[in-house]
C-alpha cells in the first residue's frame, strides 16, 4: 500500500515492521514450542488418569477443567507461534481472537437458559 491506509499511525508502523522486515521465526522457537506441546500432551494424559472426583480432591469437575485449560494452552501456543500471531499486526490479533470470543457469547447465553431453567419453582402438574 504505497499511499497506505492510515487507520492510525501506530498501525502503519506495526504493519511495516512485520511485513516490511519479513519476520522469520528461528527454528529453535518452533522446536521449543513443539516440546512444550508434547509436555502438555503428557500432562493431559496424566491428569486424566487421576480421578479428581475421589479423595483427596473431591472435585468432580476438576478433570474437565484441567483438560480444557491444557487444551487452551496448547491452542494459544499454536496460534501465537506456529500461526505467528505473536509477530503479526493488531488486526490479525483481533481476528484470531474474534471467533473464540464470539463463541463464548454463544456458550454463555445459551447456557444461561439451561442453567436457570430449574430456578423457578414448578407448579405441580
Amino acid at each position: 500500500m504505497a499511499q497506505g491506509v492510515p487507520v492510525t499511525e501506530i498501525n502503519e508502523e506495526i504493519a511495516h515492521d512485520v511485513h516490511g522486515g519479513r519476520h522469520i521465526v528461528p527454528v529453535s522457537v518452533y522446536l521449543k514450542v513443539f516440546t512444550a506441546l508434547m509436555v502438555l500432551l503428557v500432562i493431559t494424559l496424566a491428569a486424566a488418569a487421576i480421578d479428581m472426583s475421589k479423595p483427596p480432591f473431591n472435585m468432580p469437575s476438576l478433570n474437565i477443567i484441567i483438560a480444557m485449560t491444557i487444551a487452551v494452552a496448547k491452542a494459544v501456543l499454536i496460534v501465537l507461534y506456529f500461526m505467528e500471531v505473536r509477530y503479526s499486526s493488531r488486526i490479525t490479533w483481533l481476528f484470531s481472537i474474534a471467533g473464540f470470543a464470539w463463541l463464548s457469547i454463544m456458550f454463555a447465553f445459551i447456557f444461561s437458559d439451561y442453567v436457570s431453567r430449574g430456578w423457578l419453582p414448578q407448579a405441580p402438574r
Binding site: F109, S112, D113, Y114, V115, S116, R117, W119, L120
Partner: peptide, 8 residues
C-alpha cells in the same frame, strides 16, 4: 426457555 433467560 427459562423465565430468567427470558428476562435477560
Amino acid at each position: 426457555q427459562s423465565a430468567y433467560a427470558g428476562i435477560v
